[in-house]
Design a protein around this nucleic acid. Structure first.
Lengths: 186, 186
DNA sequence: GCGCACATGTAAATCGTTACATGATTCG
DNA sequence: CGAATCATGTAACGATTTACATGTGCGC
């Protein structure tokens, strides 16, 4: 399961469930998500299997935290996942299914409204990712190709987010034109 | 739930669970998937809720089939889903999570091998989608903008598949270069 | 006769979300 | 003192996958 391996990857630097949720929000949001109860439960299972090790720690803010760290066995499982090659078949994009069925609205104007809402949202996400990249570039002189390994790969991931969103924005723009043209032909 | 609405959309033309699985393979594979047991169970639930109507039918090949069709109530539910605007938050791409953690391999050559396998796979998918589009263009003189509504929207979806895959192929190519350059700098 | 595509399902297990419960610290 | 953030969890429910079970018709 992908989530197991994602947690093993994130816990290479010690992290609590709460910390991990924060990283999902910051870094993974454009290609994965998980809720807190699932994260806590999975960490417990990984600990029972000896893939991570956890200990309680006092926190400056709020109650004690339980901090997990990937074990040697966990590292091996992570490497095995990567060595097995790219994993396919999980793709999931509900808004694309919606576009597929847009004819059910039976109304080109409403189809166009849907696509315009989609475009606006995608533009926002694109701007957010671009801002992250620019901030990073400004703060780290090693950016992008002299970065340490972990950051270098994080940047590769971010680049895909940008390229994919650019493509989808271009597509949505094209769709709106095509729908408008059909609308005009009535 | 997205699957409910996808089934309502697909059953606008009568279809059995098996037929629907085939359409997932053919048309939806690049943005959604579902297994047979889930499809059968969901169809039953939708029937109990009056959103689809099912009847048994003799098949030329194999056993009887149960053919479902979206009811008026089902159509209304589908339209409501679309009218509510684009649905976000389901994005899921395990191979991107893998790229994020590729540094765990600790070996640029193996990272490159991973990315090359990814690129090969993506190129295959891109070629398959492009072939579908060309065949379609050759067979239907109305292609693409004079197509009937349902086909027009199916084509919009296919266009996104193409644009997205082109972007990802370009990205993977860029990644391989960057990884090779790092490899050279050792 | 064997394997394949057709066709439908059940059972079990796991994954994932939502609602609920608890309690500390910090800032206004 | 109220709201936000930190921090962890349980319970219940629903979604999804995997393994198993069954049987037909067709082509080699």
């Amino acid at each position: 399961m992908a989530l197991d391996h994602i947690l093993l990857g994130l816990a290479r630097t010690p992290a609590s469930g709460y910390d991990i949720k924060a990283r999902f929000r910051e870094v993974f949001s454009h290609f994965w998500n998980a809720e807190l109860p699932q994260i806590y439960r999975t960490l417990k299972r990984l600990e029972a299997d000896g893939l991570v090790r956890g200990h309680s720690e006092a926190s400056t803010k709020g109650p004690d935290k339980r901090v997990y760290e990937t074990t040697r066995k966990g590292h091996a499982a992570l490497r095995a996942w990567l060595a097995a090659g790219p994993e396919f078949g999980n793709e999931r994009l509900s808004y694309l299914a919606q576009v597929f069925f847009l004819d059910a609205l039976g109304d080109a104007a409403r189809s166009r409204a849907f696509l315009e809402a989609l475009l606006e949202r995608l533009r926002g996400e694109l701007a957010a990712l671009a801002a992250i990249e620019q901030q990073w570039a400004a703060q780290d002189p090693r950016f992008p190709d002299a970065l340490p390994d972990a950051d270098f790969h994080a940047h590769l991931t971010l680049r895909l987010g940008l390229r994919k969103l650019e493509a989808i924005v271009a597509w949505a723009t094209e769709c709106i034109e095509r729908v408008a043209r059909r609308e005009g032909n009535r």
